[in-house]
Computed example of a mutant assay.
Amino acid sequence: MAEPDKLVAEIEALGNRIDAARQAVARRFIGQDQVVDLALSALLCGGHGLLVGLPGMGKTLLVDTLGRVMGLQTGRVQFTPDLMPADILGSEVLETAADGTRAFRFIQGPVFCQLLMADEINRASPRTQSALLQAMQEREVTVAGQHRPLPRPFHVLATQNPIEQEGTYPLPEAQLDRFLVQIDVAWPDRATERDILIATTGIEETESPQVFTAEELTDAQRILRRMPVGERVVEMILDLVRACRPGQPESAQGVNDSVSWGPGPRAAQALMLMVRARALLRGRLAPVPEDVAAMARPVLIHRMALSFAARARGEDLGALIDEIAQSATRAEAA
């Protein structure tokens, strides 16, 4: 089989597997199809996700279900103000053997897993939050001068309460940029909430079958990166990201007046991966401009910030990104 034909067959087969994984997740995490698609896309891209939503929205359930369906070893950390970096990374302890000799032994922290749930990450101090920076970027941690690789694949799905600010520490821009995508978990509609109510208050709990293994997910990530991207889509990604940066010749209308800082090159890389994942979830062999517009908000919203004046005027960053994305779509179609 020729290489292009082989790649087409691999993408189609992966699309079927991902569709089965999506249905498996939906058996426990009812409704919220957009949330499930974004979370699966983040795993397919080999990245990390920031789940933003009020308590009781099922964020923990989503992460637990994804771990089961994707066959990943999971870990969980409940972030609190008194949490220390060693509570996440692990530490060395001095042990005395039976013959009286002493030696240090490293005890791994919960970060040594394949899918880490960082619950309420903004409740930890900046010192503790920064303990995840190296893990999220380099997939390794440094303890006592020793570099210790993390299991592969390695993903972080962190949760954050969007309204409670007391006793929290906002994530720094450097850490926000390491999240591939922000996933907003909103209230379910009435029909979905009715289904949740009936499905979760009975005697038996619905289980989701395992669809992938960790090794198969790693293979899927390689296939996704081989998916071809047309020149039109590449140029649209560049136009969109560069239009969101204030003080640049390509800045979109309103960006200079409303945005204090914009996305860097890592945002363009994230958008390139996420449009491939969306195309795969939609059963296509390559992304189209519609995928770029759809992924703009979740990829860019945590990589930008409104100015103080824009916040005082009541402007909405998500709406601004959507407007810029639609303008880029119209310009591409013209």
Rank of each mutant, 00 (worst) to 15 (best):
T60F: 06
V77S: 01
G56F: 14
T60S: 11
T65G: 13
G56I: 04
K59G: 02
G67D: 11
F79N: 03
L62W: 12
D82C: 11
G67A: 14
F79K: 07
Q73R: 13
G58A: 13
L54H: 10
G58C: 10
G75M: 04
G75D: 03
L66A: 11
F79G: 02
V77K: 01
R76D: 03
V63G: 06
D64I: 00
T60G: 04
L72V: 04
M57F: 15
Q73F: 02
L72Q: 02
V77T: 05
D82H: 12
T60L: 05
P81H: 01
V69A: 06
L62A: 12
M57S: 15
M70D: 01
P55S: 04
L83I: 08
T65F: 09
D64Q: 08
G58H: 14
M70V: 09
R76G: 04
T74K: 15
G71N: 01
P81V: 01
L61M: 10
Q78P: 02
T60I: 07
P55M: 15
V69T: 02
P55K: 15
V52A: 14
V52W: 04
K59T: 04
K59R: 14
G67V: 01
L66P: 03
L66N: 11
T65Q: 08
T60Y: 07
L61H: 06
T65N: 11
V52F: 05
G56P: 13
Q78V: 11
P81Q: 00
G75S: 11
R68N: 10
M70K: 03
G58K: 02
G53T: 06
V52R: 14
D64C: 00
